[in-house]
């Protein structure tokens, strides 16, 4: 009887906690997204693009997760290591340092594409096409730039936000879907398209797929431009925001909400 009462008490306790911290219920948000992913894969199952997608998606997801991680930790790390003050006292804006450090890690992270290609070729004996290698390389570089620009913006947003982890989670699955990482945006319900077109990934993922399968529209340079343009916009916003956070820190003596 006592045991039951303890369990009931714990149940009520957790109920109260969960009502205060809905982060625990993140799964309610992410599980419909899984449905979207699996249903799209089934719907598009027989199409030729599936193999290309299987190679690209892990690479893009890997790169994106890495960017999120880096964005969440880079400013915090400079602060904890006691370097933030020294950076502020130098002649260079902290934002440039943030972007530079993020950039290298992302370029190195682009090797995940090569890894997943290896898995497909060696592990599965698949015949992975690469019809337009030149476009592919340009697309990878544009993707890396846009990824670094976006991560710079996120670094600023994260340091400002009180609910970092919720934020970080919200930027995974919804992003893969809207960014056309798992299935091409064209296969998503039509009303999602305007939303997904402001995410650089939706352009660069289509580009990467197209350059591999050879299924590229003539307007592909415009897609490159969109990728770079959206990345640059994020970068500029990131620079402005980081510079503002640093200016505020000179007044308040602390960086963001940390």
């Amino acid at each position: 009887m006592n045991a039951l009462r303890v369990i009931a008490a714990a149940f009520r306790l957790q109920l109260a906690i969960t009502r205060r911290s809905p982060g625990h219920l993140m799964i309610l948000l992410t599980s419909p997204l899984f449905s979207v992913i699996f249903l799209s894969l089934v719907v598009s199952g027989q199409r030729s693009g599936t193999l290309v997608n299987g190679v690209l998606a892990p690479g893009l997801i890997g790169l994106w997760l890495m960017s999120l991680d880096l964005a969440a930790s880079i400013i915090e790390e400079e602060r904890w290591a006691g370097r933030m003050e020294l950076l502020v006292a130098s002649l260079t804006p902290v934002s440039l340092v943030v972007f530079g450090r993020i950039g290298v890690v992302i370029l190195a992270g682009a090797l995940t594409f090569f890894e997943s290609w290896l898995v497909a070729v060696v592990g599965f004996g698949a015949d992975v096409p690469l019809e337009r290698p030149g476009v592919f390389v340009v697309a990878i570089l544009a993707t890396c730039f846009a990824m670094a620009g976006t991560a710079t913006l996120l670094a600023a947003v994260f340091i400002k936000s009180r609910a970092l982890h919720v934020f970080q989670n919200a930027l995974t699955y919804p992003f893969y879907i809207l960014g056309g990482v798992l299935v091409p945006v064209a296969l998503l319900p039509g009303w999602l398209e305007p939303l997904s077109r402001v995410i650089f990934l939706s352009w660069s993922a289509d580009l990467l797929r197209g350059s591999m399968s050879g299924n590229l529209p003539d307007a592909w340079p415009a897609w490159i431009a969109m990728t770079i343009g959206l990345g640059a916009a994020a970068l500029v916003a990131g620079f402005l925001l980081i510079n503002r956070i640093i200016d505020q820190s000179r007044e308040t003596a602390h960086v963001g909400h940390s």
């Binding site: 290591a81 006691g82 370097r83 003050e85 020294l86 950076l87 260079t92 340092v97």
Partner: peptide, 24 residues
């Protein structure tokens, strides 16, 4: 600032200085 903090511990002394030289 005193103490051991404020450096990049994984890289060499020369690399640390080169980085700050660029920032200046």
């Amino acid at each position: 600032f005193g103490g051991e903090r404020g450096l990049y511990p994984r890289i060499s002394a020369r690399q640390n200085l080169a980085f700050w030289a660029a920032l200046y």
